[in-house]
Design a protein around this nucleic acid. Structure first.
Lengths: 168, 168
DNA sequence: TTTAATTTTCAATATATTTTGAAACTTCAG
DNA sequence: CTGAAGTTTCAAAATATATTGAAAATTAAA
């Protein structure tokens, strides 16, 4: 496979993959494009490469910056803004994990904590079963939270040689 | 908070949470409903509870069965089909991990393997950088795959006391 | 069988999400 | 300042996704 073809394949697949995980297709594609681009790109470059509108590029680029996956780059002597993506995949992964944890896992755990405390007879089978399900989901959430923290701190270890190495 | 209110809150939040992860809202709500239901339910029960159509219930229930999260239950003396959800949250989590791994992670790793082999000059900076990005993503994917396998095998250990305990 | 109950399918419809593009805004070189 | 280059916004349009509901298919009781 030729490089150009491979790049396009990657960009389109990364987009499709993203949608399965609740990420906007274009956002994933812009990210992919920047990942495999050797130099920083302007919004016009991305419009051209992905055949999308200016507004679309702009919105998704800002979203990616919000996720901490893309940075603005100043190119001296240039009026236009350039953008670049973090190329270290481990950093990309930890950044995504951190953000999703903050945006989704943490609020869910908070909610479950509230639902744990039901008014009424604690001996009631209905109440018991509900509380039991909610508590175990919260417990799982807390555990995932803890484990992800370890993983984030573990940095390269997890990536290169599995978390097992940490305990050897 | 009253039990009924809490159940509804849980169902609606679980639905919202699901959409963030690329899961159909109704599917997540049906799953939530079955999770907090003490007895198996019929499709009519679910239509009623969630105010949705028969077709919608039917499609999503089958999808949930496909994910291995819901089972058909035979109630003797009853013509209608009943449905129930696995209540052990650890099993639910492993099941979801298994399925997503199979449906999404494995195909992605396969694709990355194909993209690694670029025709042309291996000394070319462009080719090198592309291959480097693709390989590191594949490596991360393989590592995640391995770690998830360990987690799936670990069963209760991971859930109850963190994976750390396994190495103590 | 026959037929009533139940489940499944899927084209049409409704809803949600994404994308466009032009106007408004901002920035900075002259 | 002024205005051209560049960026942002957001209502409208396009697209993608989910839902409905009634007809077709299946099941099992009579």
């Amino acid at each position: 496979m030729k490089l150009t073809e491979a790049k396009q394949q990657f960009i389109s697949s990364w987009g499709a993959f993203g949608t399965q995980w609740g990420i906007n297709r274009t956002m994933a594609q812009i990210h992919a494009l920047l990942l495999v681009s050797t130099t920083p790109l302007t919004q016009d470059d991305m419009m051209e490469e992905l055949s999308i509108s200016r507004g679309n590029v702009n919105m998704n680029i800002r979203e990616l910056i919000g996720w901490g996956l893309v940075d603005r780059v100043i190119v001296s002597g240039e009026r236009k803004e350039y953008f670049t993506a973090e190329k270290d995949i481990w950093k990309v992964a930890t950044q995504i994990i951190k953000e999703r944890k903050k945006r989704e896992l943490d609020p869910m755990i908070k909610l479950l904590g509230q639902l744990e405390n039901i008014d009424g007879d604690k001996k009631d089978k209905e109440v018991q079963q509900f509380t039991q399900v909610i508590s175990s989901i919260k417990k799982l959430g807390l555990q995932a939270d803890k484990t992800l923290d370890v993983m984030i701190k573990a940095e390269e270890n997890w990536f290169t040689g599995s978390i097992l190495k940490m305990f050897k």
